[in-house]
Every structure is written in structure tokens, then in C-alpha cells.
């Protein structure tokens, strides 16, 4: 188990946004977290990635307690994340977006002088990564000029540049056209199959989740109500009632 979440809780005012959440993620799998709006999925994500501190509970990554780690420390440890809203450096060129992450990973972000060898290494790796997500032809475009789906792909490419072992994606399909969804979905599968990455996804598109995931954690009112492979989730009564009328029976 590469990621273990044990008893994470967080309250805002009186509201228990996340209540004693527990689950574990297997290495090289796609693990989805679903649940109705306000179930606490994004908060859970923020707790794991250090964006906000939990009230109690722990998260362990590769048997190391990472609770309350800062985001930059997590990134260096091999845990990357993408955001609900695409988060890229819009004014910078596409390849520079990826190069920034590569240099951060290599610990040469503060360099004032850079050897030609280093520069070429960074540029070559940036091109490699962009090729993987299908952006190599747009390497020199301004990131903000890319179409929506490509921006999301760039977001993932930035995450990949950190050479993570685990990548957390917050609603990677949100606000996408059907075609873009397919592109991003096949990207996610590629991460697992080709690169051997573990992917944790928070997602609303239940149909897509059923197709993609190896395991699914269902949340409601801040608590985990089910945690099983997709087939079992489909037949789970508690999940059906959480999603009114079981309308996602894809």
C-alpha cells in the first residue's frame, strides 16, 4: 500500500467536513474517490497534500508519515497533485512550464548560472514529457493560448515532471468536452500502464470512474461509506442511496 489514510478529520466551524476517513491505495493502481457534492472529497485531498492541516489522523506515503508536510516537501518526496481548476503558468511557454518542474525536482531552481549540459538535459526531458501527453508540437506556444483539454494535459505534464510515484488529481475531467474527457482518461490509464504510477482521482463523472478505476472509495457527509472495486461499488446499497435513485448505474 503506497498511501494509507487513517482517521483523518477536519471541521470548519461546527461542520465536520471530513470525519475519520480511512482507506489505502495500492501501488500502480487507479484509485478514485467519489461522492455527492459536499461529501468532503476536496477537503480530504487538501488534508493529504498539506494544503490545510487536519484536526486529527494521519496520512502515510510509502510508510512515512506525511501528515502536515508542506506541499513543496511532498512534491520532492514524490507526491504530486493537479487542481480542480487547471493550474499552469499561463504567461510562460509550454515547455518552460514543464522545465520549471524539472528544475525544481533536480534542486536547481535557485541557480543563477546553468551549464549547457544541464540546460540541454532539462530541455530534452521537457520535450519527452510533453510528447507523452501529446503536447510536443505546441512546446513553444504560450500556455494560456492552449485549448482547455491541452491545458489540462499540460497540468498533468507538470505533475509528471516531478517524477512522482503518486499523483493526486482533483476532478481532472471537470468542465471538459466529451472529446477532451476521452483524451484525459486515456492519459490517466497511460500513467498507470506505461509509467507504473499510482493515481488517486477525485471525480464527478461516475461512468468514467467505473471504467477507469481499480478501486473506489465512496464518501458521504465527510465519512467513507464504501471502499471496494468498481463491481462491488455498483451493487452497494449504501452507495446507491447516497446517489439518489442509483442514477449512475453505468
Amino acid at each position: 500500500m503506497i498511501l494509507k489514510v487513517e482517521g483523518l478529520s477536519k471541521s470548519f466551524g461546527g461542520l465536520k467536513a471530513v470525519n475519520d476517513a480511512r482507506f489505502a491505495v495500492a501501488e500502480a493502481s487507479i484509485h478514485s474517490i467519489i461522492g455527492p457534492n459536499g461529501a468532503g472529497k476536496t477537503t480530504l485531498f487538501n488534508l493529504i497534500t498539506g494544503a490545510i492541516p487536519p484536526d486529527s489522523g494521519t496520512a502515510t506515503f510509502d510508510n512515512v508519515d506525511i501528515t502536515r508536510w508542506t506541499p513543496d516537501r511532498l512534491a520532492r518526496a514524490g507526491l504530486a497533485r493537479t487542481f480542480q481548476r487547471t493550474s499552469i503558468f499561463k504567461e510562460l511557454p509550454v515547455d518552460e512550464n514543464v522545465a520549471l518542474a524539472i528544475r525544481a525536482r533536480e534542486g536547481i531552481s535557485r541557480a543563477v548560472w546553468q551549464s549547457r549540459g544541464d540546460a540541454q538535459m532539462v530541455a530534452a526531458e521537457a520535450r519527452d514529457i510533453l510528447a507523452r501527453v501529446g503536447l510536443d508540437s505546441r512546446a513553444n506556444a504560450k500556455a494560456g493560448d492552449l485549448a482547455h483539454g491541452f491545458q489540462r494535459a499540460l497540468d498533468i505534464a507538470i505533475g509528471l515532471a516531478l517524477k512522482p510515484r503518486l499523483i493526486l488529481m482533483d476532478e481532472p475531467l471537470a468542465g471538459m468536452s466529451r472529446g477532451d474527457r476521452e483524451t484525459v482518461a486515456s492519459l490517466i490509464t497511460m500513467l498507470r500502464d506505461t509509467l507504473g504510477l499510482t493515481v488517486v482521482v477525485v471525480e464527478h463523472d461516475v461512468g468514467m470512474v467505473m471504467r477507469l478505476s481499480d478501486r473506489i472509495t465512496v464518501m458521504q457527509h465527510g465519512a467513507v461509506i464504501a471502499d471496494a472495486p468498481p463491481d462491488e461499488i455498483r451493487d452497494n446499497a449504501a452507495v446507491r442511496s447516497a446517489y439518489l435513485h442509483g442514477s449512475f448505474a453505468a
Binding site: P71, D72, S87, E91, L92, R103, S109, V112
Partner: peptide
């Protein structure tokens, strides 16, 4: 230089910069 680019990334999107491991 890499430093200058890292600075620009902070000006552009500090949150993302933090999550790629830059000491903002």
C-alpha cells in the same frame, strides 16, 4: 536563469509553484 524563471512562476501562480516543489 533558472532562478529568474522560478521567480516568474511565483508571480504567475504561487500556489502551483509551491506544489511543484519551489520554495516560494
Amino acid at each position: 536563469s533558472p532562478l529568474g524563471r522560478a521567480w516568474l512562476s511565483i508571480r504567475e501562480n504561487a500556489e502551483r509553484a509551491r506544489f511543484i516543489g519551489i520554495d516560494v
